[in-house]
Amino acid sequence: MDKRVTFGGWTLPYLLLLPQVAVTAVFFFWPAAQAIYQSAFIPDPFGLKALFVGFGNFSFLLTDPFYLASFQTTAVFSGLVTIVSMALALWLAVMADRIIKGSGAYRTMLIWPYAVAPAVAGVLWLFMFSPNVGLVSWYLGVLGYDWNHVLNPNEAMGLVVVASSWSRISYNFLFFLAGLQAIPKSVIEAAAIDGAHFWRRFWTIVFPLLSPVTFFLLVVNVVYAFFETFGVIHTITSGGPQQATTILVYKVYSDGFVGQDLGSSAAQSVILLLVVGALTVIQFRYIERRVHY
């Protein structure tokens, strides 16, 4: 897509681009290139010189049980976050779509969690489930269940999944609601006249018509769970217990900053770059398809 009418001159457009290109070069491309470069070295403990190892860091990572476990953790975590937050959001959106009077008030009361930072969401959920003061964990104790996510890996995973899903529901809700409202009412009324029940109408007509929105949300929620949940993990579990909640992004951070293992951290960054690249391509293909109709 190009404009028919344009202005002449070369200097002005370069000047206009300069701020963005400068920031991008200094803080995006240079560090990314550094990550690729550093991934081929192992720095000595004093940081004086680095030993060239080629793909050594990568072959080490791909056979490292901790790294492979982190991949698996990330897959479980992002799968659960995506399913939980999308299912709840769809349920709420279907109900909000049925309401004609007062739907604006419900929308307001359902969208504000979007504005709560994932790190703050982590603190809120940590507080409710804290083993020594949490209200929910106390009542679970009354019911005979001894909650302790600090020691129990499955409970830790459950808690970070719930907190991450909670902070994502509003986003998914808004997209599902917009998708539902875009479906022509005449299509649904026609099915209602034919005597189809609500749930039958939903699964045979509404849900298939929502599939572009659903697919889009699947991709962006996986991206969210991969990259934007660092705050939740850091505030609730710090990756523990026994690395049960160490997702890939958390591992880049803990190996690079806490463990000072720069070569490995750089190699992990490069692997993550490939993951984001693949996800972006999927997202972009989808965008192109949407432009066509």
């Binding site: 963005q20 995006f28 560090p31 550094q34 990550a35 934007e228 690079g256 960054s269 993550l272 984001v276």
Partner: peptide
């Protein structure tokens, strides 16, 4: 500019910090 989409700060943590 498009490529920056693929470079969230989370994946270039250490080198960006060094810069």
């Amino acid at each position: 500019i498009f490529l920056t989409l693929m470079l969230p700060v989370e994946v270039r943590i250490v080198p960006t910090y060094e810069v």
